[in-house]
């Protein structure tokens, strides 16, 4: 199992690097950012490092990739070699290059989808909680009904109807996910809306926009940021699963989910290459989850004291 060993070594190396960076941050930073650096657990530092690496790879993909994303540059299913470090895929495209471009496509699309879901869901959720009354009732009951259908099943239904282009994919997943964001944002905001300082602001005669912007949002930020991380993981996994099922992002666009699907036959021959894109997905999700866990712990820890 030379491969498993090298994966473990690589992860250990990342952890070591995260540890070194954290130590460095502790010695350089001052003030509030210093206290964050002191407080951050190793897992979260690892998560932040991984996220930073992914972001860098996504941005610099054309510079990093040895071959173009979509071009056939060699034979089918070539083994790992000096020229093609990770071999070639089912129709002879360079695996490493597609893996690098995948960071751009898969992560980018998941991020855009999450952001869309988040903006729509949280604005509606905050608004519903603040306004209350029939608007809140109508929106909430509607969302309850939509949420009583499992997310993946509902997405599949909508994709059947609207087709499976990248744009419909983003819109459909964002719509389904916005219902979850709505529910959380509403719950968070409801906890805030009952506070006396909101009543005080209402009695002062403040408008809805001021209430959301200055009174509710600053207090809802911490849970919403953590939720953004969780929702990103969920969207990212859903899109990858759909791509894997052949219903999401499609070749020739380089995408981690469909790369697993395309090359899955190799696995039965004991070749790990098709698992690399899946591993990339898993690593990023683990990283985000580590950071989210730390944020949630911080939020709850602050509450206790």
């Amino acid at each position: 199992m030379g491969f498993a060993t090298s994966v473990l070594l690589g992860l250990a190396g990342l952890f070591a690097l995260a540890w070194v960076l954290r130590a460095g941050a502790r010695s350089i930073l001052t003030g509030q950012s210093r206290s964050i650096a002191n407080d951050i657990p190793l897992t979260a530092a690892f998560g932040l490092l991984v996220i930073a690496i992914y972001a860098a790879v996504a941005i610099a993909a054309p510079a990093l990739a040895p071959f173009p994303e979509r071009e056939i540059v060699g034979g089918q299913f070539q083994a790992w070699s000096a020229e093609h470090l990770l071999g070639t895929d089912r129709i002879g495209r360079d695996m490493l290059s597609r893996l690098i471009y995948g960071a751009r496509n898969t992560v980018g699309i998941a991020f855009a989808t999450t952001a869309l879901a988040f903006v729509v869901g949280s604005i509606l959720g905050l608004w519903a909680a603040l306004t209350g009354g029939w608007l809140d009732q109508v929106l909430s009951r509607f969302v309850d009904a939509l949420m009583s259908i499992p997310a993946l099943i509902f997405s599949l239904l909508l994709l059947t109807i609207f087709g499976t282009s990248v744009l419909t994919l983003i819109l459909v997943i964002a719509a389904v996910d916005a219902t979850r964001v709505f529910r959380l944002a509403r719950a968070v905001a409801q906890g805030i809306v009952v506070m006396d300082y909101i009543e005080a602001a209402k009695l002062r005669g403040e408008g809805a926009w001021f209430l959301i912007r200055r009174e509710i949002l600053p207090n809802a930020m911490a849970p919403l940021v953590a939720e953004f991380g969780l929702r990103f993981c969920f969207v990212f996994l859903t899109i990858s699963s759909l791509s894997f099922l052949g219903l999401g992002i499609k070749p020739p666009t380089a995408d981690w989910g469909s790369m697993v699907r395309d090359n899955a036959t190799l696995i039965t021959f004991g070749d790990v290459t098709p698992l690399l894109p899946a591993g990339c997905i898993a690593l990023l999700t683990v990283a985000v989850n580590f950071v989210v866990d730390w944020q949630l712990h911080r939020a709850s820890g602050l509450k206790e004291s």
């Binding site: 506070m195 006396d196 300082y197 005080a200 602001a201 209402k202 009695l203 002062r204 005669g205 200055r214 009174e215 600053p218 207090n219």
Partner: peptide, 28 residues
Amino acid sequence: ALKGRTREQLRQVQMIYQMADTALNPKL
């Protein structure tokens, strides 16, 4: 109702709450 009152009417009557913890926005 609150909505029908003018800013001047609102200004004249102010309120202080039991729990200062929940009456002051912790982020301001």
